[in-house]
């Protein structure tokens, strides 16, 4: 095999994977989203119009998408998801940046341990950890029991099934995705740069704002996207920790698919969600490419 052919063969595998497990299913989802829901198996109308088994035309329509834009419920669910994901991302950034900074400035021998501590929760099942939080937050849970025992409250506080619990759950679950890219970025920074800044008259906080922070922006962006993207479509956390009023697109999707059995509408919800997410990713790629060129 020639070198050129071998290189192509190596590239073929990721392409095959992407086509088979991403583009093909996506095409199917797009196809279903253009159909009409009906009582049949499968529960949607045929994409093709047939007469006596022969394909005579296409029966696609954009009604589902029209519904998503005309029904306030869906628009609200999208906006609410983006809002919850955005606030969670900001909270994760505010919490994750000092953590990443602390690890990057710790003694080199202690850094591996601190990094393990950040990723340690991943060693337990995600669901188990969410259930643990429910146990901590519920009316008879750890916090309420402790506060009552201390005599600080008479009635248990409503902590679980609130918007606050959803933010807590998302920030908790995705914090490592914020910390790790930030750490990678901060750790790479030449310590002489901060010394040079100090030498030129910058106090530590000024050196941070003018040198450390701008140089860590690609890490900030990477961390934010890694938290924001999965948070927008999050289903488990709002379902288990949110209240009945916590509206997120993941829950809507679940309802349409499993309760209403409206496959075409759920498919449309998915496609639109994908479009909502592709925009920040494309933005990220552009900024990242520009930042790489700079360094």
């Amino acid at each position: 095999m020639s070198a050129k052919l071998r290189r192509r063969a190596v590239l073929a595998l990721p392409w095959l994977w992407t086509v088979l497990f991403f583009f093909l299913p996506l095409a199917l989802v797009v196809k279903i989203s253009l159909a009409t829901s009906q009582l049949s198996v499968p529960p949607y109308s045929d994409f093709f119009a047939r007469t006596n088994g022969a394909v005579t035309g296409i029966r696609a329509n954009l009604d589902n998408y029209g519904l998503l834009f005309s029904d306030a419920l869906y628009v609200k669910a999208y906006l609410s998801s983006v809002k919850i994901a955005a606030i969670s991302t900001v909270l994760a950034l505010l919490l994750g940046y000092p953590m990443a900074y602390g690890i990057a400035h710790a003694a080199p021998t202690r850094r591996p341990l601190l990094l393990v501590l950040v990723t340690l929760p991943f060693w337990t099942s995600f669901l188990v950890r969410i259930y643990a939080w429910m146990g901590i937050l519920r009316p008879g849970g750890t916090i309420n029991t402790a506060l009552q025992a201390l005599g600080l409250i008479d009635e248990p506080l409503r902590l679980l099934n609130t918007p606050g619990a959803v933010y807590l759950g998302i920030v908790y679950a995705y914090l490592p995705f914020m910390v790790l890219p930030l750490y990678a970025r901060l750790e790479k920074q030449d310590p002489a740069l901060l010394e040079a800044a100090a030498d030129l008259g910058a106090r530590p906080w000024q050196a941070f704002l003018r040198v450390t922070l701008p140089l860590s922006l690609p890490g900030v962006l990477a961390g934010c996207l890694l938290v924001f993207i999965p948070a927008v479509g999050e289903f488990v956390i709002p379902e288990l920790m949110g209240g009945p009023d916590t509206l997120m697109i993941g829950r809507v999707l679940w309802n349409e698919f499993f309760t209403n059995h409206d496959w075409p509408l759920s498919a449309a919800v998915t496609v639109l969600l994908l479009i909502v997410l592709v925009v920040p990713v494309a933005l990220f790629q552009t900024v990242q490419a520009r930042a790489e060129k700079r360094l």
Partner: peptide, 27 residues
């Protein structure tokens, strides 16, 4: 260091990579 009337040129030069030449000098 920021309170001393001395300035140091570092062996690695320690130029700020995100700033232009002018911005470095203006820092």
């Amino acid at each position: 260091p920021y309170a001393r009337p001395v300035n140091m040129m570092f062996q690695s030069y320690a130029l700020f990579p995100h700033m232009s030449v002018e911005e470095n000098v203006a820092f």
